[in-house]
Design a protein around this nucleic acid. Structure first.
Lengths: 337, 337
DNA sequence: ACGCGGACTGTAAACGTTTCCAGGAGGGGT
DNA sequence: ACCCCTCCTGGAAACGTTTACAGTCCGCGT
């Protein structure tokens, strides 16, 4: 009560006040037994002093920081919001705190996140890179702590991995448009040199091929963002006035496209039916509400977090696991026939 | 290169390899001088071994973890996304990592976030509580590390604080609706027992009073969320069929209201003009786009982060500072006259 | 030639824990 | 009455840094 001890109470303060050794204090506080009166004295002292163990000291000694990190492009994209939410939940459940890295899709930032594992402030990392370069792979293989990747990896990379076949998802989108009678189906993509950009482009072509259509000239690429999507849509509409279906590589692009279509006086879905991808919360907010191919982002976040937590505990040395989620098309007003 | 040292390189590994003491290694690596050849040897050894300093050890010794935290209700609300983005940026700039607490507006969780400062894993906290109880204030005053509150505090609380007069903002919304000729102006609020709920309600009344209107019976409350907003709107429409203006306490509610209005066959803005609050990214996504009173969420996040960073550095003992941001109405299609 | 000052170095302590180890106390069985 | 076993305890080391302190070396001025 009086104790003129400077600074917050430590295990030592308690030891002095309870008249026992710091070892005993530590044991009692960790529930490792002790004589009843020792336990009582220590607990009394601890609560009186409002003792809270110093997490840094504990981490240093135990080699465990109790922290994991999630690195994504930008938290502004609702697809990552969904992931963060679930990762957060799983992490908290397992007793980990969550750190956020916003990389802005900058390769250097991503690598920095990866390398930052080396300083041990974080026990593991979930990363969702949209480009995967040789350097990424090198750095991944060299990572000093467990890493779980959300997104597709090249064959043979031995890392826990949560993926979704967005190529199939893209094909589903096209099939759906074909199914409601559309024939001139455009595609607004993100950058072609990204993993998702590639996969979705191939899926688009797959979908067209299956339907016996040709759409080579109906593609525009930009960024995976709203404004960029609006511009791309405008370009496409000028080039292809008889467009009647539009698949967008993510919901942000789709939102931009809806805006551009409206400004161009096209009705959705009557004139042009639109399908987005990711099935984010945005899809239920637009008007008309947006048909979108869900890629299970919440689920992927959850799975990734579970993989990581497992590897940090029980599954220390298990084989790397590749988990996948299946895409699912959610039909809404933007493709009502 | 060969070194059968187990585990990652430490300052000691380097010392052995370079044939100097650990003190010298530390000094060289921190740029505190040394004889040219010592510097060379140490640096060579460090890079060969790929040395990275252990953040935990450093934190323990230095008493600084290099981490700050942000506690908010739910990252699903775009208003927090905007804040997180900016906080993240400022934190990174100043060399801090950012931890996220999602409290789900649960009082216990919020208090836990506050108390968790005591374990020193975090140097400071930015918190945006929507309810402020006696317990919050006690815990805030007792916090062992700097805290910045985003949101209004009772008079006399000595804490760094970033606020916005949302009461005035609400009044602006009503004035705007009055300005375009609306007279039966409803209000969809969040919970009345929250700080923002209170302020916005008062502002709504202020606005009506200024215009010489009476609207006591035109209010519905629910949660600050989309679905809840849709339900509230439905209830209100049934009770008040001649509604011609609607102010919503945040954009999520407004999005729900837009949906409900559409389902009820009312045109926006022709039949009912709608104003939201927070001016989140959602406002530009809906159709019609949503007029909304911006409360500078990005700016508030930024200011809060700056206050915190300052207090952790230079401003250690400066007086608590109260900063405020002024609301700003952004007119869009939902109130076009 | 000697001493002095300055620049550099190494030893050791400190940060706050957890945990290994050896020793002590107490109780039960012979 | 003695011994052994169990249970608890305190001392000390360890985690990987930074830093105060005291010592060493060198060159320079006298």
């Amino acid at each position: 009560m009086t104790s003129a001890d400077s600074g917050p109470a430590t295990i030592e303060t308690i030891a002095r006040r309870a008249g026992v050794s710091i070892a005993s204090v530590s044991r009692v506080l960790n529930g490792l037994g002790g004589r009843p009166d020792t336990v009582r004295k220590v607990q009394a002292a601890a609560t009186e002093l409002g003792y809270v163990p110093n997490a840094m000291a504990r981490s240093l000694r135990g080699g465990r920081s109790g922290q994991i990190a999630f690195a994504m492009e930008d938290i502004g994209n609702p697809v990552y919001v969904a992931m963060v939410r679930r990762i957060q939940a799983v992490a908290k459940e397992a007793g980990y705190r969550l750190l956020l890295h916003s990389t802005g899709a900058d390769r250097e930032e991503e690598l920095r996140a990866l390398r930052s594992l080396a300083d041990r402030h974080t026990e593991g990392l979930i990363i969702s890179p949209i480009r995967i370069t040789r350097e990424h792979l090198d750095e991944l293989s060299r990572a000093v702590a467990p890493v779980v990747v959300i997104g597709s990896l090249p064959e043979g990379v031995r890392l826990d991995n949560v993926r979704v076949d967005s190529r199939v998802g893209a094909a589903m989108a096209v099939a759906h448009l074909v199914g409601i009678g559309r024939r001139r189906i455009g595609f607004l993509n993100g950058p072609l040199d990204t993993v998702p950009g590639q996969a979705r482009y191939k899926g688009y072509l797959d979908g067209l091929a299956t339907a016996g259509l040709d759409g080579a000239e109906l593609v525009e690429s930009g960024q995976f963002q709203t404004d960029s999507g609006a511009e791309a849509a405008k370009r496409l509409l000028e080039r292809v006035p008889d467009l009647d279906g539009l698949f967008c590589a993510n919901d942000l692009i789709a939102v931009g496209a809806l805006r551009a279509l409206r400004e161009a006086g096209r009705r959705v879905p009557d004139d042009v039916a639109v399908v987005g991808m990711d099935d984010t919360e945005l899809a239920r907010v637009t008007w008309p509400t947006l048909t979108s191919v869900g890629l299970g982002s919440a689920r992927r976040g959850e799975l990734a977090a579970e993989l990581l937590v497992d590897r940090l505990g029980e599954g220390r040395d298990r084989e790397p696991r590749w988990v996948s989620v299946t895409p699912e098309l959610v039909a809404r007003e933007s493709t009502r026939s």
